[in-house]
């Protein structure tokens, strides 16, 4: 387990994962986080010691499915209040940098 743990921990490439999360990091942050995250990942890997064969995963302690409410029209959040929070707007729409050329 020891070697496997090390191999897995070193599989954490902070710069790459930050890219997946659309999160820019400065070089000094990457260096700091790499050490801290490896320590944390090493710690959480202790769950590998347990035998969990046959245990069903638990995603939620409330087992609900298909919760319905009456399909009745009602007012939504006021458009103007939503637009007041937009960083940039044009013609009542939220403006963003061009996505498709």
């Amino acid at each position: 387990m020891g070697d496997a743990e090390q191999a897995k921990a070193s599989g954490l490439d902070v710069a790459y994962v930050a890219h997946l999360a659309r999160l820019h990091l400065r070089d000094d942050e990457i260096a700091l986080f790499q050490g801290q995250m490896e320590q944390i990942v090493h710690y959480v890997e202790q769950i590998g010691k347990l035998d969990v064969d046959g245990v069903a995963p638990l995603s939620h302690t409330v087992s609900v499915s298909n919760v319905w409410r009456e399909d009745e029209p009602r007012p939504g959040i006021d458009h103007g209040k939503v637009m007041d929070n937009a960083p940039e707007q044009r013609d009542g729409l939220i403006a963003v940098p061009k996505i498709v050329e």
């Binding site: 994962v17 990091l25 995250m37």
Partner: peptide
């Protein structure tokens, strides 16, 4: 990426990275 770099503090960044990983 730039918004999240400027907007989030170190602990939030660490947790986003751990969770993504």
């Amino acid at each position: 990426g730039a918004t999240r770099e400027a907007g989030f503090g170190a602990e939030v960044k660490r947790r986003i990275i751990l969770g993504t990983y």
